[in-house]
């Protein structure tokens, strides 16, 4: 039924994105976006209630960038992620209950409770890890791409980073090496306008991060990071290029984090108006409206996706609460592979 509408010549201006993915994949993308949103809200609530300690960096508002980047990737493709990495992790295929178990510091968590929010990883699904160091994942992604090349695979390494990281030396060194060796890397800059409190206007000599791509002889594309179709189409072009042996690309997704940088943020560097303006450009609302308009999703189906996401998050939190606390006797267990000193 819905497929028929998609193929209706009356909807002739339908974007490639909606033609490339079948309806199940499109609905699943929306489901993942809701899962990320509810995950972040659930994590925030658990933190506020004192169930989780430490700090966390929420990606509410950036879901289209994460899901749009990952939805056409293979399990064997790698991603490296950032301190704001929960969304990337879910988008690449992680199970939210094992992520919650990690946040609760449990043995069942992805990192057995040793990593927490800032080091969340799911190596099985190709996520080589979030990173607590701004720019830390950039050269690592290039190295993973080098290994891909050495192993004669046609996989890619996708490196997420923020606008702030593009001012780090590691960014410039990583892009240069990826370019001179023509490695299969996608550099996806999620430009959410602020490196903590300092705006890109105050911290960057160029207007866009993508302006830096020509210095490394690679395409630099700017997309609306709150529109999943824009993100996904750009990423598909870049992955095709990378898998074809044509080298790396830089994609800048213009987006916004609705929450503060971390738990300490008092929003002194931006206005309520600005936040409201971006809230009105909600990536989930945009995508859902399109899916409904194109006959890909009914309202009741959307509601079912929301309900299912909420239930999955709630059961994930319960799973985490019932997890096993690590024993202090195992403190040094995983420092070395063979248990040396």
């Amino acid at each position: 039924m819905t497929q028929a509408i998609k193929e209706n010549p009356a909807v002739s201006n339908l974007r490639d994105f909606y033609r490339h993915f079948d309806n199940a994949a499109l609905r699943d993308a929306l489901r993942r976006m809701y899962l990320i949103r509810r995950f972040e809200e659930g994590a925030e609530e658990a933190y506020t209630r004192g169930l989780i300690h430490g700090t966390m960096h929420l990606s509410i508002g950036q879901e289209a960038s994460a899901v749009g980047s990952c939805m056409d990737l293979r399990k064997t493709d790698y991603i490296t992620s950032t301190h704001r990495g929960h969304g990337h992790c879910i988008a690449k295929g992680a199970d939210p209950k094992l992520m919650f178990a990690e946040f609760f510091g449990k043995e069942e968590g992805y990192c057995r409770g040793r990593g927490g929010s800032m080091h969340i990883a799911d190596v099985e699904s190709g996520n080589l890890g979030a990173n607590g160091i701004v720019g830390g994942g950039l050269p690592i992604a290039v190295g993973a791409a080098l290994a891909i090349r050495k192993q004669k695979r046609d996989d890619v390494a996708v490196c997420f980073f923020g606008d702030g990281a593009s001012n780090e030396g590691a960014f410039h060194e990583a892009l240069n090496m990826a370019a001179i060796w023509k490695l299969p890397v996608l550099f996806i800059c999620e430009n959410n306008k602020y490196g903590m409190s300092v705006s890109t206007e105050r911290s960057m000599a160029v207007k866009h991060v993508a302006d830096r791509a020509p210095a490394y002889n690679m395409p630099g594309e700017i997309v609306d990071g709150n529109r999943i179709e824009d993100v996904s189409e750009a990423v598909m072009r870049a992955t095709a290029r990378a898998r074809n042996g044509d080298g790396p690309s830089l994609i800048e997704t213009k987006t916004y984090r609705i929450r503060g940088h971390s738990k300490s943020d008092r929003n002194r560097y931006r206005t309520k108006e600005e936040i409201e303006e971006w809230k009105a450009r909600d990536p989930i609302g945009h995508f859902e409206a399109n899916l409904e308009a194109f006959g890909i999703l009914r309202k009741d189906e959307a509601e079912a996706i929301r309900t299912a996401a909420e239930a999955e998050i709630a059961s994930g939190v319960e799973f985490a609460k019932g997890g096993t606390d690590p024993s202090p006797a195992d403190l040094t267990r995983d420092v070395y592979t063979k248990g040396a000193a």
Partner: peptide, 15 residues
């Protein structure tokens, strides 16, 4: 810095 990171990433990915 970058080259050391490339080595880390390559090691992680099986080299």
């Amino acid at each position: 810095l970058g080259a050391a990171g490339v080595a880390v990433g390559a090691a992680l990915a099986g080299s």
